[in-house]
Write a protein that binds this DNA or RNA. Structure first.
Lengths: 316, 316
DNA sequence: CGCAAACAGTTGACTGAGTCAAGTAATTGC
DNA sequence: GCAATTACTTGACTCAGTCAACTGTTTGCG
């Protein structure tokens, strides 16, 4: 939550680089500690890594292994030969390419790997066991975050899911909108307060028959949301549409608006209305594309800025 | 934000262990990639680590280095001898223990290390440079989180600081309280809505002359908060006291209440009042210790539970 | 098609990072 | 005051990992 003094758009800051290096040093040591016990076993660290991959993935070739683990081809070749001679691994000619063989681990290989695998699990369990349940959860979540952000598998298999509101969501959305609009448009804390007021009212008077909320979640994180509220029997209001900057470009905003429109139609509303500000350009594009018409504009001073408020309506 | 299906209080779950191991494998590879270029330099990885430590810390002995980097004493001894013969390092007899020497890096050592250091920085800059500014910030924050939680330096130098309200705080506090009380006491989303309503009102009608908020922050994270609101010229109300489970036991709750009391006295209030529920045991202890008296109790059904509300007053 | 370039994997020849055990001198603990 | 421990050194070794040269196969392109 610390705000960087000089927001660097393009280049990583010195502090960020230093922090990452500090983490790398730290984790290098951590890995060293975790492996200390293991390298007394029958397998070297690299052998263990290779066995692990073979045990957990199918249809691997030597090239795959070398690429994914960063190993020298020659070294790997010998290593596999040793495994084959001990009966831990078998090679089958690859159907498509006669140069390659498909590797698979044998039962004997799994059996030989098991103690090592268990030792590794115990080692990690010991590390985590020292922490409270709270901290343990937090560590795992943070690791996943690092891995996901740094990982090359940039596109998750499911780009996002929509789900109903849960406890914790409205606070999170208030927080993120507050921070985001402060950063992007310089709005002050009164916007955050407005979001809090709207959402408090939404939950308090929530009518599941005529109202709804959609939360976009991506890999366990909230990345967008929208709320549909009943204004009258004929008019529904779309409120607080937002998409995380990191999740933009996936069509989440459009999808959220479409869900609102579909729900409003199904519930028999005649009009879907919304209020926004002209500075929110990307949101406006979504509204326009969805068929909303601008029906009113007015200048106002809110959130510490001079703004132009806009009302958009969609006939359902 | 994913809720664990079966909350394990004592032992790390299989999933957590698997996740940590996955991360370790991932980062092992990552470190390998970062070092690929470096090991073409004049120094081995271990030599670089030793030089790094020497360049950034003072008064190190060989034992310190061996312990912190996990190196064999014999290997380290030879390594230092080599550095000494090249004029990168000097040894001075340790004042307290004639067996030890205090190591220090020379200017020549720094100079020899510099290209390596720069290459490492560039490598990391390259890694981070592929990310958007958003993602970059998130990665660094998550790494720091892992390091802090896993690091042995359990106690930060400043256990916590108090600061005024910032944009983003109220949403964050609503979120955390919602999640926390749902988890600990099974309260439903209406508590979160109540918190949102209270805080929206606080910000909207905030009178800095007679009202205040204190946020407890620890290593850049919000770990507690309290709000003081004006009820009348003579009565102030303390609201929404909370401390993160991970930061309990540091006296943060007590400190927040004390700040409220001091502020209320300074502003000439005659009474400080608050409303709580009897299930919030640790909060009650703080109020009692601070001299609050229980002045009323009533049963109510709120937040999906049968509760006993309590009013506590303190004469100022 | 045909041929050069690239690729998958193998093998030989190294090297140097890291280990292990035994030893010295100083310090600590009882 | 003496045994146990600690800080460091040294000798002897090994094995993980590198590099380059080679075989057979596939790909790309005129």
């Amino acid at each position: 939550m610390t705000e960087v003094s000089i927001p660097t758009k393009e280049q990583p800051s010195k502090e960020q680089i230093a922090d990452v290096r500090a983490f790398t040093r730290f984790y290098t040591r951590q890995i060293g500690l975790l492996e200390e016990r293991l390298h007394k076993s029958a397998f070297s660290l690299t052998e263990a890594r290779v066995l692990y991959e073979l045990a957990h993935r199918n249809g691997l070739t030597a090239t795959d292994l070398g690429r994914d683990l960063g190993l020298d081809a020659g070294y790997l070749s010998r290593l596999l030969k040793k495994f084959e001679s001990r009966g831990f691994v078998t090679r089958a000619p690859a159907p498509t390419d006669a140069r390659q063989s498909v590797l698979s681990i044998t039962d004997a290989g799994r059996k030989a790997f098991e103690p090592l695998d268990r030792a590794s699990r115990e080692e990690v369990a010991g590390l985590l066991g020292r922490l409270s349940a709270e901290h343990r959860e937090a560590v795992v979540a943070a690791m996943q975050r690092v891995q996901r952000l740094l990982g090359q598998n940039r596109e998750p298999s499911t780009p996002y899911i929509l789900r109903p509101l849960q406890v914790g969501d409205i606070g999170w959305i208030i927080h993120r909108q507050g921070v985001l609009y402060a950063r992007e448009y310089g709005w002050n804390e009164s916007y955050e307060a407005l979001a809090a007021e709207i959402l408090a009212g939404f939950v308090k008077s929530f009518d599941p028959e005529y109202e709804n909320a959609w939360i976009a979640e991506r890999e366990g994180e909230v990345v967008g949301s929208v709320f549909l509220m009943r204004k009258s029997a004929e008019v529904a209001k779309l409120r607080l549409l937002y998409v995380e900057p990191s999740a933009r470009g996936l069509g989440i905003g459009r999808r959220l608006v479409d869900e609102c429109i579909g729900f409003a139609r199904a519930k028999g509303y005649k009009t879907l209305t919304l209020w926004t500000n002209d500075v929110l350009v990307s949101a406006r594009r979504i509204y326009q594309a969805a068929g909303f018409q601008l029906t009113g504009e007015e200048r106002h001073h809110s959130f510490g800025k001079d703004l132009v408020g806009q009302t958009w309506d969609l006939a359902l």
